[in-house]
């Protein structure tokens, strides 16, 4: 009986997931072809992917572990500075820059996470804000290393070397987009694997019911800390890509406005769904780009987006669709 239901169940979910998944990747891969026709440009597409990755990383914590961080700018910004340090001071290598981004952002996430692990809810959120502000403050004040207010400038992302082949992501925007997409693909693959693993399931269990989870023998605080660290890891990858995209790293990448933006992207797209944050990032980044070029009052519009999402679309775009499908 059950032996027949398991494969049947698996088949059904696979069938259901296959089409949207194919559509998402088809859209992402063909971006450089259709984007110019809708008035976009490659850097915008890359920015969508970068923030999409940051928001998906945050969402491991927010949507899948049920723990809120309003300070992920810290790991995003540290990722950016990590990449910047390598390219500016040390060596002209994109892979090493990404490695430094990951190390710096993830280490900070693990450290701060450990300091906050016993807190929950709104207090936890407040601490995340405070820690992010520490990073912002350090980057802002430590002029000699970080370039202070102006940020770290005067570096360029390096072309990739595969043996004799050189992929010039430095000068070719399309190639750089595909580089970002490749990193994005690896990261989302890892996330999907994680969420199907026992560790990932423990995160979802904590979201659903922390008390029950504890009394199943899972140490909740430690798992929240692990989730926080993993989340910081993915967000720092995004931050590293952000530095490569801009060819600079400045304190605004660490500012709490970035934290808020990453959260709204996740919520706007649907924090209960895997791809929601990417959709949210696409909508938000595009709107932001458009609005800020249209009006000096762009802050009001962005603010109204926040208010509207909270009051009228709290489940987000994909959450809304998912709800209807299930019903």
């Amino acid at each position: 009986m059950s032996e027949t239901t398991i494969p049947a169940m698996a088949d059904r979910t696979q069938q259901r997931n296959w089409l949207p998944l194919a559509a998402i990747w088809l859209v992402l891969i063909t971006v450089p072809i259709w984007l110019p026709y809708v008035g976009g440009y490659n850097a915008l597409a890359s920015r969508v992917l970068v923030f999409g990755l940051a928001a998906m990383g945050l969402n491991l914590l927010l949507g899948f572990t049920g723990t809120m961080s309003f300070g992920h700018a810290a790991y995003f910004g540290l990722g950016a500075y990590g990449a910047g340090f390598v390219l500016r001071y040390w060596i002209h290598s994109t892979p090493l820059a990404m490695l430094a981004a990951i190390l710096l952002g993830t280490a900070a996430g693990a450290l701060f996470g450990a300091l906050m692990a016993k807190r929950t809810g709104i207090y936890f959120a407040m601490l995340t804000i405070a820690f992010a502000q520490i990073c912002y403050y350090v980057a802002y004040s430590w002029n000699s290393v970080t370039g202070g207010y102006d940020g770290l400038r005067g570096f360029q992302r390096a072309p990739l070397h595969f043996g004799p082949y050189i992929v010039n992501i430095r000068d070719n925007g399309v190639l750089f987009y595909y580089f970002v997409l490749a990193v994005f693909a690896i990261c989302t693959g890892l996330m999907a694997m994680l969420l199907r693993s026992p560790l990932g399931r423990s995160f979802i269990a904590i979201r659903e019911n922390p008390r029950r989870t504890r009394f199943l023998g899972i140490p909740v605080e430690r798992h929240v800390w692990i989730s926080f660290t993993i989340s910081a890891f993915f967000t720092s990858v995004a931050g590293g890509l952000y530095a490569l995209l801009n060819n600079f790293a400045d304190p605004t990448a660490l500012f709490y406005v970035i934290s808020g933006n990453i959260v709204i992207m996740a919520v706007m797209g649907g924090m209960r769904s895997f791809w929601g944050p990417l959709i949210g990032a696409a909508v938000f980044v595009t709107l932001q780009d458009y609005i800020s070029s249209m009006t000096v009052n762009w802050m009001s519009f962005i603010g109204m987006i926040f208010v509207a999402v909270v009051l009228f679309f709290p489940r987000g775009l994909l959450g809304f669709i998912g709800r209807r499908r299930r019903a």
Binding site: M193, L194, S197, P198, L199, G200, R201, S202, I204, A205, E208, N209, R211, R212, T213, F215, L216, G217, I218, H223, I226
Partner: peptide, 27 residues
């Protein structure tokens, strides 16, 4: 105290995996 938005099978799976010492395994 249950995980309301998971299936019965997934609810039990969390417990089984915890008992089997798999809870920290990311794969």
């Amino acid at each position: 105290e249950i995980f309301p938005e998971l299936t019965v099978r997934e609810n039990i799976r969390v417990a089984v995996e915890s008992q089997a010492g798999l809870r920290l395994r990311p794969w």
